[in-house]
Amino acid sequence: MAKAREIRRRIRSVEKTRQITKTMEMVATSKLKRATDRVYAARPFAQRLAEVIGRLLEPELRERYPLLRQPERSRRAAVLLLTANRGLAGAFNTNLIREARGLVQRLRQDGIEVELHIVGKKGIGFFRFQRERVASGRTDITDRPTADDAASLADPLMAAFERRELDAVYVVYAQFRSAMSTPPRVLRVLPVEAPKEKRHDGHVHNYILSPSADEILNRILPLYVRNSIYRALVETAAAEQGARRTAMKSATDNAGEMLDILRRTYNRARQAQITQEIAEIVGGAAGLE
């Protein structure tokens, strides 16, 4: 009797867990849909911006633009790590943290001083635990990042780069290839890697440029940097939901499998108990005769 009751209790507990993971899976699925829409909606701006920069920029003249400055020797770099505020998303946060640690290590081996800027409780928690100095930690960015969020991250870094306090800025984020594939990536946002213009539809010399190519570039290069960070934010947000959905789906499946086994064991125990009771009754009756 005791054994069957024990199994029943476990069945009930696993059922409740499955209910929770199932719900989380559905929540992640609906958030994923909206997050994916935001990833796609962000593409036209980035594309057109890259097109125009590629068209206006003469690579030989890059020293004229502070954001394109290539330092001869890198002394100090910033690493901006994007993680989630929440867990229960499989190896999502761990992968990002591992990527960031690898990058920090490589930079330090090259004698570069690294300052860490982290978005998301998970990343901040890890590096604080490692007793790393976290130059800035942000937990206020939701799973719907805005262009303003990106600007508030990018602007201080750009200012430090222009003041020559930083020689490079890297972003560690999760690339959103699909809901199933969200590998961690490192993107160097500063100095700006100038996008190359592939199409040669009409020379820039025929363009009316107002006020001038230099001034236009100096105004729109910061847009490009902010936009790179914005895209990293939305891709990471979508990747988080994708990873959580996958993790919760396999948790739900596993709970289902476990329930099958538990139910089978429970039935066997129940039948054994009934058989035993009958045997006892039969035995008792036989004893009376």
Partner: peptide, 12 residues
């Protein structure tokens, strides 16, 4: 103001 047939232009 921009009408059709405008010369290529980039303006802040």
């Amino acid at each position: 103001g921009i009408l059709r047939g405008h010369a290529p232009m980039v303006v802040l």
